[in-house]
Amino acid sequence: MKGTDIAVSCDHRFSIGVERDGGRFYLSIPVSNRLVDYEERYEISQAEFELYRQDLSAALPLVSLCRRRQADDRLMTPPGKDRGIAM
């Protein structure tokens, strides 16, 4: 899945973007395991995407849930056996 980040919050370490192939919207956070750093992508609705694009701080409650693994039902790709820790 390739995506294009549309907005990035360096202060809060997340981004929002659009999948190039499927057109789905996502919020991504950086994670790290003992071998690699990578991103976990969580699906968001178009309405959420538009809201977050206008005001990135509006995404912070969801970012917090994602970091605590409380929004796993939105993961676009299931985590592997060695799931990383949010950075």
Rank of each mutant, 00 (worst) to 15 (best):
F49Q: 10
R68Q: 14
N33R: 06
Y52E: 08
G17F: 04
L65I: 03
Y26T: 04
F49H: 10
V36Q: 15
L65D: 01
K81F: 09
D21N: 12
K2T: 09
L27E: 05
L35W: 10
D11Q: 10
R67F: 14
V18K: 14
P61R: 14
F25I: 05
S9L: 12
S57D: 14
A47C: 10
R74V: 03
S28I: 01
N33A: 05
L56T: 08
E50A: 14
Y26G: 06
I6G: 00
D72C: 00
D73H: 06
V31F: 05
E40S: 04
I44F: 08
D37N: 13
A59E: 06
L56I: 13
I85L: 14
R34D: 05
S57Q: 11
C10T: 12
E43M: 13
I85V: 15
R41I: 03
T77Q: 14
Y38E: 11
P30S: 03
Q70A: 10
K81E: 13
N33L: 04
Q54I: 04
K81R: 11
E19F: 11
L27C: 12
I16S: 01
G3H: 01
R13P: 01
I44L: 04
G23V: 14
E19G: 09
R68D: 07
R68K: 12
A86Q: 11
L27M: 15
G23A: 12
S64Q: 13
A71E: 00
I6Q: 02
R20A: 14
S9C: 13
R69M: 07
D21S: 12
Q70Y: 02
S45L: 08
S28Y: 07
L62C: 06
V18W: 08
L27R: 07
C66F: 03
Q54N: 15
L27G: 13
Y52Q: 12
D55N: 15
L75V: 10
R24M: 05
R34M: 03
R67S: 12
C66Q: 00
R67W: 11
L51S: 05
R69Y: 03
A47K: 09
S45P: 11
P61L: 13
A58Y: 04
V18I: 15
S28W: 02
R83V: 01
N33Q: 07
V31L: 14
S45M: 05
L60P: 09
T4V: 06
R67V: 07
S57Y: 09
L62G: 07
S57C: 10
